[in-house]
Amino acid sequence: MKNDYNVFIPCDTAQHTCDKTQYDEASIWEKVKLSIHLIHCKACQTYTKNNHKLTKLMNENKENNLKIDERESLEALFRKELSRNDS
């Protein structure tokens, strides 16, 4: 609990928070601590920059992926055809 009030966090925690931020799962307090860490840590600044770029690219391509239900129905049709082929 004591650590929660410490504004200075190590790099692994900062990167962990940065990952959570990509999925909107970091709390405001975690984001504040990450921002303070980023002021002085070059390595985490680079990590954050690349992490944001990755998220941007994944989002740009999101519409070009099959949705879960689409993949499931394709799988069901394929299984049917596969079993017909086996018999």
């Binding site: 391509n61 070009n64 992926n65 099959l66 993949r71 394709l74 799988e75 394929f78």
Partner: peptide, 14 residues
């Protein structure tokens, strides 16, 4: 073929 959907459906769709 058992792994086709899992391994390649997204790639092919893309």
């Amino acid at each position: 073929p058992n792994g086709w959907i899992k391994n390649y459906s997204d790639y092919l769709f893309n």
